[in-house]
Design a binder for these strands. Structure first.
Lengths: 192, 192
DNA sequence: GTGTCAACCAAGCAAGCGCTAGTGTAAACG
DNA sequence: CGTTTACACTAGCGCTTGCTTGGTTGACAC
């Protein structure tokens, strides 16, 4: 039982699990379904993961790590103005939501299924990510780009962005960057 | 088995079920847990509901009906300007989210557990509710109060509002009306 | 050629699941 | 009065669940 490693096999299994968790939900996804999707028998699954919950934690961790990395990279590559940084964060957020869609949907819907230990660990990751947002929003407030309550603005923005997983269709006419730009326009000027 | 009635007993049971569904999630809530919470034995539960799924449908229907009624009332009681109507809708939305919190959390998280029949029925209700929003947002666009894409604006607003169930604490300093006003301010002017 | 080790399998256990069948009872109805 | 109706009970069927156990396989090391 090689529990805590990060073997490529385990990563691939995690990716498959994320897909099933989205399709069926965590509780309705049985270890037998997971095993079948992975091309192994249900017992073999417990060679890679201690229990079913650990699979869930692995899925969420993977998605959150990627989101954090992508946001950090976006902030180093964008311009220095508050608007550029705001736009970069929104674009990065939607890009993650799209490329790691399964993992993020699982994180949004199945967070409460985590046990206390996993939840504590992953909360730190999420807090680090949200801290990036608050920093960028603080700067935008200071520059007078946006107005209002720091706490409320960041919550509203996160809500608007995360809600996209419910309706956004990547095959439609709008690109993720379009969405990000329109959202930034909406809160900075009420203009397009 | 008095399946389709709206007895007060059934309403009370639905309310209790909503609470358990929020605490545990639909799949993890067993009929035995539901029965115990209701002070009856598990078998007796099926006198009031055809099956477990029907309880879920009842919970969501209750919440959606209330939201629809509340929004309609708010629209008749508010002023005629686009801004007044926008604010009224936002306030009504948050008020529902608060008073029927359990039912709405269930609707947001457990929608996919509905069978096809119930989903079709409830989709109509939800569409009726969202039509109210689009109508109000269309008017605000026409009046030049807000700008941008009609579809995107309504999705962003719904996202920001619905996300509140994840973080809003009614015991805190902010009233639901404060939130609604701040959101309207954010999208109409970027101002407080 | 013997030892090690990750990866996997076959078989199954104990617990719990949604739901049904059949019955009892007290109030409401004709 | 007898009948119906609403609501609850007991008992348990048939099945699925997450997970364990004990053992096999094949690649690589020394």
């Amino acid at each position: 039982m090689n529990v805590m490693n990060e073997s490529p096999r385990r990563k691939e299994l995690t990716r498959l699990a994320a897909q099933l968790f989205v399709q069926e939900g965590f509780d309705r996804t049985t270890v037998r379904m997971l095993a079948q999707e992975m091309g192994i028998k249900s017992g073999s699954l417990f060679h890679h993961f201690r229990d079913k919950q650990e699979i869930l934690a692995a899925v969420i961790e993977e998605g959150t790590q990627n989101a954090l990395a992508m946001a950090r990279r976006a902030l180093t590559e964008c311009g220095p103005t508050a608007e550029a940084r705001l736009r970069a964060m929104a674009r990065a957020h939607l890009e993650t939501l799209l490329t790691d869609r399964n993992a993020h949907v699982v994180a949004l819907y199945e967070w409460r299924r985590l046990d206390a230990e996993a939840r504590a660990h992953l909360s730190h990751l999420r807090d680090a990510y949200e801290a990036l947002w608050e920093e960028v929003i603080d700067a935008a407030l200071a520059e007078g780009l946006i107005h209002g309550d720091r706490f409320l603005v960041s919550r509203f923005v996160m809500g608007a962005l995360n809600w996209t997983v419910r309706w956004y269709d990547p095959r439609g006419p709008r690109s993720p960057d379009d969405l990000a730009d329109e959202l930034v326009a909406m809160i900075t000027r009420g203009a397009v």
